[in-house]
Nucleic acid binder design. Structure first.
Length: 99
DNA sequence: AGGTTGACCGGTT
DNA sequence: AAACCGGCCAACC
C-alpha cells in the first residue's frame, strides 16, 4: 500500500470530536517527515469523500485553510463539539488525538 | 524528464 | 525567540 492509502486510513481513524495534526498523520502513516504531503493529499480529495479531513489541523492548533474552505471546516468541527475558531488555537492536549 | 509548488514539521542556527 | 533548512510526495506544467 502506498503512502496516500496509508494516510487515508489514518485520517479515517481519527475519532469523532477529536483533531490531530498533519505531522501526526504523517507519523502514523509511517513517514514522519511528510506532513506537507498530507496536506497535499487532503487538498485534492474528491468532492464527495467521506473522509473526516476536517479533523486534521496544523501543529499550532489552527486550521490551515482559508476563505470558504476554512468556514466549512470550522462548521464541521463545531458540529461535533470541537470549539474551533479562526483565530483562537485549539488546545491539542484536550481535543487532540492521543497516541 | 526535470522543475515547481503546496492544507507542514522538527531540528538547528 | 525568530528565522532558516531539509525532508518527502503527488500533481501539474
Amino acid at each position: 500500500m502506498g503512502f496516500a492509502q496509508r494516510v487515508y486510513q489514518v485520517v479515517a481513524a481519527i475519532p469523532y470530536g477529536r483533531v490531530t495534526t498533519y505531522g501526526q498523520v504523517a507519523r502514523l502513516a509511517g513517514s514522519p517527515r511528510a506532513a506537507r504531503q498530507v496536506g497535499g493529499l487532503l487538498c485534492r480529495l474528491p468532492e464527495g469523500s467521506r473522509l473526516p479531513w476536517h479533523r486534521v489541523i496544523n501543529r499550532f492548533g489552527l486550521c490551515s485553510l482559508q476563505g470558504e474552505d476554512l468556514q466549512r471546516q470550522l462548521a464541521l468541527l463545531q458540529a461535533e463539539g470541537v470549539p474551533a475558531a479562526a483565530d483562537c488555537p485549539l488546545d491539542l492536549a484536550r481535543y487532540g488525538w492521543p497516541d
